[in-house]
Structure formats: C-alpha cells, structure tokens
C-alpha cells in the first residue's frame, strides 16, 4: 500500500511541477494573462470542468466510464432554459439541473448495472438518445432568456469580483476531497474498481455502489450544466457537446487509471486547471486558438505515455503485484 501511495504522490507532484513551469512561462511571455479579468474567466471555465471531472473521476474509479456527459449537460441546459424562460430563479434552476442530472445518470446506470451492458456501449447509446431527444424537442435553441436566468454568470460575484461558480466549485471540491478520503462509500468505490469479484466476496453490493456513484456524478454534471447553460441569453442543443472529453481528459491527466481502482481527486483538481487554461493561455501567447485542441491532445498523450511507462517499470520491479492497484 505504501508503495502505491508514493506512486500517486509523484503523479500529482509531476503535474504540479508542470503546472508551475507553465504558469511561470506564461507570466514571462504572455503579457496580460494574469489580468484579473482573464483569471476570473479561466476560473469560471475551471469550475464547470472540475465539478464534472470529480463526478467523472468517481465513475472511472469504479472501472466504468461515461461518454454521454456532454449530451447529458446539453439536456440539463435546455431544461433549465425552458423553465428559465418562465422566470425561474437560480436556486430553482440549480435544483432542477441536479435532479435532471441525477435522473439521466441513473438511466445510464440502469443499463450498466441491471442489464450488464458495458459502460462505454451503454453511454454511447444514451448520448445519441439524449442528443436525439433534444433535436426532437426544440428547433435548435431557446433564446432571448430573461435576466433572472443569466444571474449566475452576469451578477453573482463574490466581493464583486470572484464568480460564484468558483465558490460552488471550491465547496464541492472540499466536500469531495473529504468524502473520498474518509467515507466508507469511497472505500467501496475503490474496491469495486480494483476487482468487482473480490469486492463482491467482501460483501459489497457492487451494483448498488456503481448505481449510486453514477447518481452522485449526475448531480455534479447538473451543477456544471447550470454554469455552462446560464452563460448567455441563448441555449442551443449543443451546449455540452464534446465536454465529456475534456472531463475524461482532466481525470486521466490527473493520474487516475482508466482501468479503475486507482487515482485521487487531487490529481483531477490539477489536471482540470491545466486543461481549463490552455485556450486562453495560447491566445495570450499570440497563437491562434485553432491550436488549442491539438495542444490539449498532446499534453494528455504525453501524460498517459509517461504514466504507462512508469506502470510497466513498476510491474517489472514487483512481479508479484502486477496489475494490483489500491488507493
């Protein structure tokens, strides 16, 4: 166990060093990057990326995956836009979004736990169902939304400057860090991710654990949906398109094993920050944003390669422990 903890520490350590180097580099070469305005708009993006990435991290820790998150968020955005058009205020929007997120995520979990369909297949199918139902429900977008709807993005600033979305993000992150460290449920998540069979043998209800994990993650996706959806007066059917890849990338970059059972929230916290800053950073460096996706991809690839190389090394050094990864 001790050995594994050390390994996890170094993953996060490497990431932190990388982040620090990038931040110093930006300080020197990207004039204006550290303006308050830019930092706050990065924090806003960071908030929705991290909140969802925490949910995604939990799902991946159980050895599953969810590629429907982007479409799920699009549904959340459209639902809150529909009630926002009628004048619903932020608390109503937030609760509705979380409930919708939980329901849709439970729908995913139903196929995965009850019908035993592999998570990637099930969520690939539900992606189409979510997205398809949107195009059936609305013609492209809901627009001309009232001021009550955009309150979170336009008006909700703590001390007049810090976006409230970031405050929500900090609260959720702190709870998640404590929850994943101390709760009994988190132990079950890691156990299921390590080996469903041995988890079952120790008396863990695997299906229930996975189901609940999806539902919790769904609530987090809902919170992200509110931040993404209330950014402007128009909500299209594609608000969340492609976001799932950013979330999964933040999790993977943070050192969580896609096989499940290994990885911590702290890594995701750093991974999400790196990904959330890229678009803005390269603009300030004077490079076209068309490069953003390319650079994101390269960073993820390098980080996965580095961690794969380390795993191979580790397997060679302790042959008896090959494949066993614990928290």
């Amino acid at each position: 166990m001790k050995h594994d903890r050390k390994k996890n520490l170094t993953t996060e350590f490497y990431l932190l060093v990388f982040l620090a180097v990038v931040l110093v580099f930006l300080g020197v070469f990207a004039k204006g990057f550290y303006s308050i305005n830019n930092i706050m708009s990065i924090l806003n993006v960071y908030s929705y990326v991290l909140i969802s990435a925490i949910g995604m991290n939990m799902i991946i820790l159980t050895g599953n995956i969810d590629v429907s998150t982007g479409a799920l968020i699009s549904v959340v955005c459209l639902v809150i836009a529909a009630i926002g058009k009628l004048g619903a205020t932020f608390p109503v929007l937030l609760i509705t979004a979380m409930v919708v997120g939980m329901l849709l995520s439970a729908f995913n979990a139903f196929f995965i736990t009850k019908l035993k369909i592999p998570a990637i297949v099930a969520t690939l199918a539900t992606t189409q169902i979510f997205q398809g139902s949107l195009t059936l429900a609305v013609e492209g977008s809901i627009y001309d939304l009232p001021a009550t709807y955009t309150w979170l993005a336009f008006k909700a600033k703590v001390f007049g400057i810090i976006p409230f979305s970031f405050v929500m993000c900090v609260i959720i992150t702190v709870i998640a860090l404590l929850f994943m460290k101390y709760s009994r449920f988190s132990k079950k998540i890691y156990a299921v991710g390590n080996s469903t069979e041995s988890a079952r043998l120790t008396g863990i209800n695997v299906n229930r654990t996975v189901f609940l994990t999806y539902v919790i993650a769904g609530a987090l996706f809902g919170v992200s949906g509110v931040i993404v959806g209330t950014a402007g007066q128009r909500v299209t059917t594609t608000m969340g398109s492609g976001l799932e890849m950013t979330f999964i990338a933040a999790v993977v970059l943070g050192g969580t094993s896609t096989a499940g059972g290994s990885g911590r929230i702290l890594g995701t916290v750093i991974g999400a920050l790196i990904l959330a800053s890229i678009s803005s950073a390269i603009t300030y460096l004077g490079i076209s944003t068309n490069w953003a996706d390319f650079i994101k991809g390269a960073i993820i690839l390098i980080s996965v390669l580095v961690s794969a190389l380390r795993t191979v090394k580790r397997k060679r050094s302790i042959p008896g422990k090959a494949g066993v990864q614990a928290s």
Binding site: N37, N44, T236, T238
Partner: peptide, 14 residues
C-alpha cells in the same frame, strides 16, 4: 458551438 463561442468571447474581452 455556443459554449466555445462564449469562451472565445470571454477571452477576447479580457
């Protein structure tokens, strides 16, 4: 894509 347009405009305003 609406979300990307929003992000690009936020960066520009900064």
């Amino acid at each position: 894509d609406e979300t990307k347009v929003n992000e690009a405009c936020a960066t520009l305003i900064g």
